[in-house]
Computed example of a mutant assay.
Amino acid sequence: MENVDYIIVGDGYASLFFAHQLIKNNKSFVIFSDEKKSASRVSAGIINPVVLKKFTTFWKAQEQIVFLKKTLDEIEKYTGQNYLIDAPIHRIFHDENEQKLWLKKSANDDLVYFLDKNFAHLEGVKNDFNSGKVNQSARLDVNGFFMGLFDFLRNNRQIINEKFIYSTINTSDHTYKNFKYNHIVFCEGMGVKNNPFFSDIPVVPNKGHHIKVKLFQHLPENITIKKKHFLFPLNDNTYFYGGTYDREQLHYDVDASAVEQLTNGLKEFYPHNFDIEQVNFGFRPTVKDRRPIIGRHPQQPNMYVFNGLGARGILNGCYFSKSLYDFIENGIPLHDEIALKRFFPQ
């Protein structure tokens, strides 16, 4: 029997950022990964403090940006690589009214450090009304992040590539197979719906598609272009364009309507030929109030859930991983806006 402080179930952003908190604090753990392609692993990796439809920001945006950069610096110390890509978002304006709204909002206290007042004209795309730069925005090298962290964890025998079987947990003596644990943290995304301990948490699947395209005229590599969706270069001379949002078509197949939406969206501002080389999709776990769901099971005091990261999985997963760690290890209460008890008062 092997003793561990933590078992983590799941292998997306919530899992890996929480694992980082354990590494920092010298806690022993194993992660159970069934090696399915999670929403995290097919995500765009956008790090963005601004809601670009309305030019607004969100709760703790500045704190999350600062904490993420600090965390990625810490991760670099043991993986040997920093996965932050300095490629700020440039939002293409539809018309003069959007330009005026951007300038007006840029004077607000909560947006003054995010909305750049100097507009830019982008080469190679249609942007008759120029574009606005989102300061402090960036991207995560998603593939590099997961490969780098998984390699580190495998080398330390902290990844177990098998499906987690809930019925095998012995809740009385805190064992699972050949592990004796102090805590279990479930970071399963939409897989939580199969979890008998937390299946009733109110996460809603939001299906997102993106396309991998070959552009016949290349664009600048040091920016991320946004109009309806995000466009940016990948490492293999292709580009990412996406993603869509759909709460209705929840089957496990590619939606032709989503591909058509993406194709038409790209044609709106990219006036050159392109080929679609791949279509991917994932199911984001979203919550009605747009806050993560974090907390302890009411009857099993050493079981926890970390879920509902939504479209801001990187920022939410990174920032609130420390909130969960401090809650478990130091007894620091969770903020009411993220706590599980807001849905299930204990």
Rank of each mutant, 00 (worst) to 15 (best):
N48L: 08
Q217S: 04
F152D: 10
N206I: 09
K133R: 07
D236A: 03
L153S: 08
I85F: 07
H20W: 03
I92G: 01
F32V: 07
H94A: 15
L111A: 08
K163H: 12
F67V: 07
Y6P: 03
F152L: 12
L16P: 06
I328S: 00
Y241Q: 05
N195L: 05
Y166W: 12
W102C: 05
F343Y: 12
E248D: 14
A339H: 06
L219P: 00
N97L: 13
G124P: 00
K341D: 14
K288F: 13
Q300Y: 13
V259N: 09
E221N: 00
N273D: 10
Y239R: 01
T244K: 10
D246T: 09
G189N: 08
E329D: 04
D246E: 12
V125K: 01
F327Q: 00
F269S: 00
R284K: 03
H183A: 07
F93N: 09
I225F: 03
N25I: 02
N97G: 12
R154F: 14
L324H: 01
F129E: 12
S38F: 02
K193A: 10
N307D: 03
I47Q: 01
D236P: 03
I92Y: 02
K105Y: 13
K37P: 06
F114N: 06
L262G: 04
L215Y: 00
K228C: 11
D253A: 13
I92D: 03
L16Y: 11
F119V: 10
V30C: 08
R296N: 01
K37Y: 11
K37L: 15
A39M: 11
K267G: 07
L115W: 06
I225V: 04
H174P: 06
R312A: 10
I47F: 02
K133E: 08
K69M: 10
N143D: 15
Q158L: 10
Y166R: 09
T263D: 11
N307I: 02
F343C: 05
K70Q: 11
S28D: 08
D336L: 11
E96Y: 07
Y241V: 05
S172P: 09
F67L: 13
R342I: 06
L324Y: 01
